[in-house]
Computed example of a mutant assay.
Amino acid sequence: MGTHLKPINLEIPIVQAGMAGGITTPELVATVSEAGGLGTVGAGYMSAASLKDEIMKIKQLTSRPFAVNLFAINLEEFSSEIGQVQNFLNKYRSELDIDQGKDSVKVYDYLQEKVYVVIEENVPVVSTAFGVLSSVLIQRLKENNVTLIGMATNLEEANQLIDAGFDMIVAQGYEAGGHRGTFDVKKYPNGCNIGLLSMVEEFLENCNVPIIAAGGISNKRQIDALLSMGVAGVQLGTRFLVAKEAGTNSAYRRALIKSSSVDTVITRAFSGRPARAVFNRFIKEVEASDCDFLPFPIQNELTKDIRAAGKEFAVADFQSLWAGQGVGAIVREESVKDILTSLIGKDTAEINFEK
């Protein structure tokens, strides 16, 4: 089991998705990796200093390989054309009793610095979303023996990643929670919406690198079926959101446990980029308004204070409750150990949780 993923020496073919925004605590990443899977730091929005700190904490908890997930695009943006959206959002700020929105917004990017941190700290695996890293960054990572995993939502994207030198591809189906890796959201405003099974079949037939399946996966039966198709492994995010070791806040956890598979929608309300979330009041009202969404990452920056207040005050209606279509399988909080045991089956538990 896991021999397909030999480049990164996994004992079990399970990758924990790199969910940005504080979910992937050092404890979550380290416990998954220590069990023989691949834990992943969701570093998309992190500064280089924060990433370094996270990596050092993980290394204190495990000596096993883990990954860092980065956005392959430059997030650096400035905009003062935000008045209409800010005015609309201010009613939520008033309701939450937080400061009104500013007249302009600036988003910073730390991609290059984070790549240096990955190299400096000898992180063995980098996964990416939203595109292809520059050839300069790919060369630097390759020179330092970093395995590159790229997320793709169609065959054209997969081929671009392979041509650029990526070692593995995540086939990310329409069912996946949060932001999928679609490169061109002008061409695909709601993301490239291909179901996982069709995509896996196409990638396996046309790609000459290992394929990892992602999107709506929640149990052992699905994993066994995908492995029998020929994928090298599977990537799961939503199941790990309710892990006791995850950084998911209590209101978010409760919303996930209450939700079924019909409760998720694809929305641009929170970030300006299509992402699958549990439907709530914020999505309903923003999408029903005549307010034009601003592009990612500006919209994401504008809603950040509202989402943070929703988290602080335990109000699920103001949070981006990212979740895949497999959310109905979540019925309780569980430890990483319990989650992994249910995903691979007790009979194959060569997992070492005691180290």
Rank of each mutant, 00 (worst) to 15 (best):
E354Y: 11
L227P: 09
V105L: 07
G181L: 10
A316C: 03
I119E: 12
G101K: 09
R93V: 03
M19P: 12
R273P: 06
L226A: 11
F279T: 05
N249L: 01
L70K: 11
P295K: 09
I339H: 08
A20Q: 14
L38V: 07
Y45L: 08
K244P: 07
F88D: 06
F353K: 08
A314W: 00
S127T: 15
S80V: 00
A17V: 10
V262C: 02
R273D: 03
E120I: 02
V242F: 00
Y92T: 03
Q60I: 01
V200D: 05
E301Q: 14
K57M: 12
K57N: 13
A35C: 09
D103C: 06
V41H: 03
S33W: 04
E54F: 05
I14G: 03
T128M: 06
E34G: 15
D290W: 00
E301I: 00
L241S: 01
G37R: 07
V170D: 08
C207S: 12
A269C: 11
E77S: 14
E301P: 00
V32D: 06
T267W: 06
G247Q: 05
S320Q: 15
A275L: 11
V242N: 14
I298N: 02
E312D: 15
S335M: 13
F270M: 04
I194L: 15
R281H: 13
V185H: 02
F183C: 05
I138Q: 09
I58K: 13
A246H: 05
D163N: 14
G345P: 09
I223R: 09
V125H: 02
G191M: 04
I12N: 05
V68P: 12
A67G: 13
A164Q: 07
N74F: 01
G310W: 11
R268S: 14
Q84G: 00
G2R: 03
S80A: 14
Q60G: 09
S250F: 00
V29L: 09
E157K: 09
A30C: 08
A314C: 12
I339P: 06
D347I: 02
S127G: 12
D317F: 01
K106N: 06
Y108M: 11
G272E: 04
R221L: 07
N190R: 11
G36M: 09
S259N: 11
V286W: 04
T341G: 00
M229R: 14
L302Q: 11
A316F: 06
L89A: 06
K6G: 09
V132N: 08
E54S: 12
V117G: 03
R140E: 15
G326C: 04
P65C: 02
E11T: 14
T25M: 05
G42A: 13
I149Q: 09
N145G: 02
K311L: 08
E175K: 10
L294R: 05
T264A: 07
L236Y: 03
A72D: 06
G18W: 05
K59N: 14
V32S: 08
D167I: 04
I162F: 05
F66P: 12
S218D: 11
E175M: 12
A316K: 14
G328I: 10
N69V: 10
L111G: 02
E156G: 14
A329W: 02
I23G: 01
C207L: 15
C207W: 02
A176C: 11
L51Y: 10
G18N: 05
S218C: 15
D263G: 10
